[in-house]
Design a protein around this nucleic acid. Sequence first.
DNA 1: CTTGTGTCCTGTAGGC
DNA 2: TGCCTACAGGACACAA
Length: 278
Amino acid sequence: MPELPEVETIRLLLQPLLAGRRIVRAFVRRRDIVGFPAPRGFELGVAGRTVEELGRRGKYLVVRLDHGGDLVVHLRLSGHLEVVGRNEEVRYERVRFELDNDKALSFAEPRVLGRVYLVQRDKYPPELAGMMNMGPEPIHADFDAVYLGERLRGRTAPVKNLLLDQRIACGVGNIYSDEALFRAGIRPLRRAGRLGRAEVDRLAQALTDVLRDGIKWCGTTLGDGRYRLPEGGAGSFQKRLAVFGREGERCRRRGCEGVVRRLRVGGRSTHFCPVCQK
DNA sequence: CTTGTGTCCTGTAGGC
DNA sequence: TGCCTACAGGACACAA
């Protein structure tokens, strides 16, 4: 569910609630949610640590602890972080971190696909290889059309697939890839290596823009409301989606008669306007 | 190395 | 109402 803008929003809102707080102890309520180390070691390693600040890398949230520890969280499709009252119960809660102020940080994950890790900052284990091999952040300056062109050159896979590859551009998921392709006027099934220079330019810019817009509007809360802000509110980028989830509806571009179509690309539901995208 | 496909796990929506 | 299937914001392990 959460892509870069959602994780960044969570980071920004959680930061003031957690920074400087001590985690009194941790309860693992579902063992396979802990990616590293073993659940018992995770609980013991977290207990007593103080949160220094919150960081993010792609879709990973990094809670920096004192003594050089990083509590790394990946929300995958349905994970959710929330600060709640100490006695408040949370549905689908998998890990609970008791804080020193009668509140608790709750990690809920109905599908149990998300993971938490406790690692030393200078020594990430192989379980987090995906994070180590991640490409640049599309919202930063080291991501540009020259870089993207290099990575797409010679590739025959559909461009949509490569946008989802975190080694190329981290933080991009199913929603924002569709939206970026729409803004760039490129069909998702186009072979990545066949894009022209102007198209790559537009795509790089569109990725940067759409992720920044997503952050600006606090992310995308779809109908099921699975992504919520840590205080419970909703994001608002869903109101600005051009194609994602709009199959059969009219294209948003002024004067365009196109109807949004949906197809399956690399097993993922994919949306585009057949008029605006070539 | 690249690519496509299946799998992980659970809940929910929609068809019959 | 109840059963069954398909699908879901992600990432990997594979096979070809």
